[in-house]
Amino acid sequence: MDFTLKIWRQENRKAKGRFETYKISNISPDCSFLEMLDILNESLVDKLSHPICFDHDCREGICGMCGLYINGHPHGPDSAVTTCQLHMRKFSDGETITIEPWRAKPFPIIRDLIVDRTALDKIIQEGGYVSATTGGVPDGNAILISKHKADEAMDSASCIGCGACVAACKNASAMLFVSAKVSQLALLPQGKPEAAIRVQNMVAKMDDLGFGNCTNTYACEAECPKQIKRSNIARMNREFICAKVASEESTKR
């Protein structure tokens, strides 16, 4: 297959970026999207130019490192896959493909298609955990958890932290990401004791870092490669309101 690629190039955070056009031919339909970029990069190195920088690691859809904005969609046209799992058979021969980095204020561009997503780690650091230190914990079966609850928590916990939800949202909101973690821990008995403070701190940090508000368009859910559901956002909103009310009541007392 042959393609015309329009790819965003930008030397560093401060440099001005631009699209550059590349032609690539003889690509197998079984080639993955990133392997197609590998082939392009080898040809660029052959021509002594700087290869296109993009993030990737596991190449099997689990680490959350890859993330390209392809033809207007985070992770491209296929559903429920990350960029590394996307294959060229999903495109038509001769197609022009536009490739951009995630665009969101809290994700500054580092180079070409690589952005800085440490803002997501910073939100987790505000409380996306159970404060259990190593040792002194009860037996794993001491607290029973219904299969249904465990499965639901697992679904929320499947988030890979790639940031596609932020890139998909016109407001650059991180609600889906934050709510997935809040939900996972709110569903499990181990997460309950800190649930109220967790949701408040994480939401405050999210706002603080410049992520936008959720205006309920749910582009995030549509583009999430792990099919994290919008119901997480609803649960987080409930958790947040309950936490607010509880903390107001406790200050009154």
């Binding site: 955990y129 159970v130 914990v137 794993g140 958890i145 299969k147 499965d151 997460g191």
Partner: peptide, 22 residues
């Protein structure tokens, strides 16, 4: 065995059966 206990305490959602056990 301590590893499993530790992970459960952290909120790792291990698979459970219908009785609620791991």
């Amino acid at each position: 065995n301590s590893i499993i206990d530790q992970c459960v305490a952290q909120g790792v959602p291990f698979a459970r059966d219908y009785s609620g056990m791991l």
